[in-house]
Amino acid sequence: MTEYKLVVVGAGGVGKSALTIQLIQNHFVDEYDPTIEDSYRKQVVIDGETCLLDILDTAGQEEYSAMRDQYMRTGEGFLCVFAINNTKSFEDIHHYREQIKRVKDSEDVPMVLVGNKCDLPSRTVDTKQAQDLARSYGIPFIETSAKTRQGVDDAFYTLVREIRKHKEKMSKDGKKKKKKSKTKCVIM
């Protein structure tokens, strides 16, 4: 069974824990209790493949930012979460993405942009803004509501699919490099 290491990042209060708990335990946590770091595991079937999701729910508070490099190193894919009623959390996505790329030393890291709290009427981040940002990053965008469960499975499952595509691409690139290195030079 394939294991996928997913990391949920975003500013404090955007609903990272609520999304994760909704996926794992099928219930909505409405009281806000700032996370330092929590880890969850769940076995699911995605596109006919049974897999184990190892999900790291991270601290959004700035005082825990020193811990970010460590979990970013171990993560295979990242859910970059903002709240649709919090423009600052949307603007912060850029910083999370840049930090992930720096730590992973790669421009090509599996990510999904997630606009959470889409059940709320007080939207300050337009869907088109988020779609445009995701398009500019070359990553999928999904709106979710941890409260109603809308888009929750889709967000995590899409990230797994992005990781699969990335692994497939990397193995193809690896095979191309191996083929090239088999060419021999004969000096007579």
Rank of each mutant, 00 (worst) to 15 (best):
T2S: 13
T2E: 15
T2D: 12
T2I: 03
T2L: 04
T2W: 02
E3V: 10
E3C: 10
E3T: 11
Y4V: 04
Y4P: 07
Y4F: 12
K5W: 00
K5V: 00
K5S: 05
K5Q: 01
K5I: 01
L6A: 01
L6W: 00
L6N: 00
L6Y: 01
L6R: 01
L6M: 06
V7D: 00
V7C: 14
V7S: 02
V7Q: 04
V7W: 11
V8N: 00
V8D: 00
V8M: 01
V8Q: 00
V8G: 00
V8C: 04
V8T: 00
V8H: 00
V9K: 01
V9H: 01
V9R: 00
V9S: 01
G10T: 01
G10Q: 00
G10W: 00
G10I: 00
G10A: 02
G10Y: 01
G10M: 00
G10N: 02
G10R: 00
A11M: 09
A11T: 02
A11I: 15
A11C: 06
A11V: 10
G12K: 02
G12L: 04
G12E: 09
G12S: 08
G13T: 07
G13Q: 07
G13I: 10
G13E: 09
G13N: 08
G13W: 02
V14S: 10
V14Y: 00
V14D: 02
V14L: 06
G15A: 00
G15Y: 00
G15M: 00
G15D: 01
G15Q: 00
K16I: 03
K16F: 00
K16T: 11
K16A: 10
S17E: 07
S17Q: 11
S17M: 04
S17C: 02
A18S: 10
A18Q: 04
L19Y: 05
L19F: 10
L19V: 09
L19H: 12
L19P: 00
L19C: 07
L19G: 05
L19E: 06
T20C: 07
T20L: 13
T20G: 14
T20F: 10
T20H: 10
T20S: 13
I21P: 15
I21M: 14
I21S: 15
I21E: 15
Q22K: 12
Q22M: 02
Q22S: 13
Q22E: 12
Q22Y: 02
Q22D: 13
Q22W: 07
Q22C: 02
L23P: 15
L23Q: 14
L23S: 15
L23Y: 11
L23R: 13
L23A: 15
I24C: 13
I24T: 14
I24M: 14
I24S: 15
I24R: 13
Q25G: 08
Q25F: 01
Q25C: 02
N26C: 04
N26G: 10
N26M: 04
H27E: 11
H27Y: 08
H27S: 10
F28H: 09
F28K: 08
V29G: 14
V29H: 09
V29K: 10
V29W: 08
V29M: 13
V29A: 13
V29F: 11
D30L: 03
D30Y: 04
Y32N: 14
Y32S: 11
Y32V: 12
Y32I: 12
Y32C: 13
D33E: 13
D33K: 07
D33M: 10
P34K: 02
P34E: 14
T35D: 15
T35Y: 03
T35A: 11
T35H: 13
T35F: 10
T35W: 13
T35S: 11
T35I: 03
I36E: 14
I36Y: 05
I36K: 15
E37Y: 01
E37A: 08
E37F: 08
D38Q: 03
D38M: 04
D38F: 05
D38Y: 09
S39M: 08
S39R: 10
Y40Q: 15
Y40R: 13
Y40D: 11
R41N: 09
R41P: 14
R41A: 07
R41I: 04
R41M: 08
K42E: 08
K42I: 06
K42V: 05
Q43G: 07
Q43Y: 04
Q43F: 01
Q43R: 10
Q43C: 09
Q43K: 14
Q43P: 09
V44T: 09
V44S: 10
V44Q: 10
V44C: 12
V45G: 11
V45L: 10
V45T: 11
V45H: 07
V45A: 12
V45I: 12
V45M: 06
I46C: 11
I46R: 03
I46S: 05
I46A: 06
I46L: 07
I46Q: 01
D47G: 07
D47Q: 03
D47E: 06
D47H: 04
D47A: 06
D47Y: 02
G48T: 05
G48R: 05
G48H: 06
G48W: 01
G48C: 01
G48D: 06
E49Y: 01
E49D: 08
E49I: 03
E49H: 04
E49K: 06
E49A: 04
E49V: 06
T50D: 09
T50W: 05
T50Q: 02
T50N: 07
T50K: 14
C51Q: 03
L52F: 12
L52W: 10
L52A: 13
L52K: 13
L52C: 13
L52R: 12
L52N: 14
L53T: 08
L53V: 11
L53C: 04
D54S: 11
D54Y: 03
D54A: 03
D54I: 03
D54W: 01
D54C: 04
D54L: 01
I55V: 13
I55N: 07
I55Q: 04
I55H: 06
I55M: 10
L56E: 15
L56M: 14
D57G: 06
D57F: 15
D57K: 01
D57R: 03
D57L: 11
T58S: 11
T58L: 08
T58H: 13
T58P: 12
T58C: 14
A59H: 12
A59N: 14
A59K: 10
A59R: 13
A59I: 03
A59D: 14
A59M: 07
A59T: 14
G60K: 11
G60F: 02
G60E: 13
G60S: 08
G60R: 07
G60A: 07
G60W: 03
G60Y: 04
G60N: 12
Q61F: 05
Q61V: 13
Q61G: 11
E62A: 07
E62Q: 06
E62S: 11
E62T: 08
E63V: 02
E63D: 14
E63Y: 05
E63M: 03
E63N: 13
Y64T: 15
Y64I: 12
Y64A: 15
Y64K: 15
